[in-house]
Simulated assay, not measured.
Amino acid sequence: MPPENGQRRRPSLSLPILRLSRSQHLAGTLTLGNLLSALGETSFGWAIVVFSLFTLLPLPPGSSLITALPLLLTTGQMMLGYTHVRLPGPLARSRLDPVKLRRTILRLRPVTRRLERILIPRYTLLFARRNERLLGLMLFVIAFALFLPVPLSGWFPAISLFVFGVGLVERDGLVATIGLGLGAASVLLTATILISLVVGAEAMID
């Protein structure tokens, strides 16, 4: 049934990643660097989206110590004022599992569907060049919370970074702000869990 008022339905956020990952997998060229280059490597937004998805792949506990490193690198470069993402050779050549990537994207469909309904370019001053370093600093703190192997907290910073990345890709300042708000909550949760673990450990020692 065609959309009302002659409006076209907006394309799915996950479609470019799914299409490119499939075509690159068939060509035997599916790596982190190739996928980012095809999406537009100069965009920090796509880098944050892809690296967040990478972090959300079904991996053994404690894997965030490794999977969060690209996010720390990306947000760190943003904080330092880089104009585009610069991946080290070994990271750029990292192979991706297309099946796990697809499953992760499909698992996030409840989130992406809601975002697709509201995404429009707005409040774009948030993304002004003068704000990039501050945004990078806030995102770096969220990525660091993800990096820490704290039980039960890893998904929250990853999803908040994903939401911010989508907002940055689509130039939607409202969605990006929501991502930052979720990130702040995830940092607070991580800090609370860490403090509880430290207090509990001290109580056991005493």
Rank of each mutant, 00 (worst) to 15 (best):
M1Q: 04
M1C: 09
N5F: 11
R8S: 08
R8M: 08
P11T: 03
L15D: 10
P16K: 04
G28F: 07
G28I: 05
G28Y: 12
L30R: 12
N34D: 09
L35Y: 06
L36E: 07
S37D: 09
A38E: 15
L39Y: 10
T42K: 09
T42Y: 03
F44I: 13
G45T: 08
W46V: 02
A47V: 06
I48P: 08
I48S: 03
V49K: 11
F51Q: 02
F51P: 02
S52L: 02
L53I: 10
L56A: 04
P61M: 01
G62Y: 14
I66V: 14
I66F: 12
T67V: 10
A68Y: 08
A68M: 02
L69D: 09
P70A: 03
L72E: 05
L73A: 04
T75D: 08
T75S: 14
G76M: 01
M79F: 15
L80S: 06
T83Q: 06
R86A: 12
R93G: 01
S94E: 07
S94G: 00
R95D: 01
R95W: 06
R95G: 00
L96S: 02
P98Q: 14
V99F: 13
K100E: 15
R103T: 09
R103D: 11
T104M: 11
L106D: 11
R107F: 11
R107D: 13
R109W: 05
V111A: 12
R113S: 02
R113F: 13
E116G: 10
E116P: 05
L119C: 11
I120T: 07
I120W: 05
P121S: 10
R122S: 12
R122P: 12
R122A: 05
F127K: 10
R129I: 14
N131F: 13
N131E: 05
L134Y: 03
L134Q: 06
L135Y: 02
L137Y: 08
I142E: 03
A143M: 05
A143E: 03
L146V: 03
F147S: 07
S153A: 15
G154S: 15
G154R: 07
W155Y: 07
P157E: 03
S160C: 01
G165H: 07
V166Y: 11
L168S: 11
V169T: 05
E170M: 04
L174Y: 06
T177F: 12
I178Y: 12
I178Q: 08
G181P: 12
G183N: 07
A185D: 01
L188V: 15
L189G: 12
T192Y: 13
T192F: 08
I193Q: 03
L197T: 00
V198K: 00
G200K: 00
A203T: 01
I205C: 00
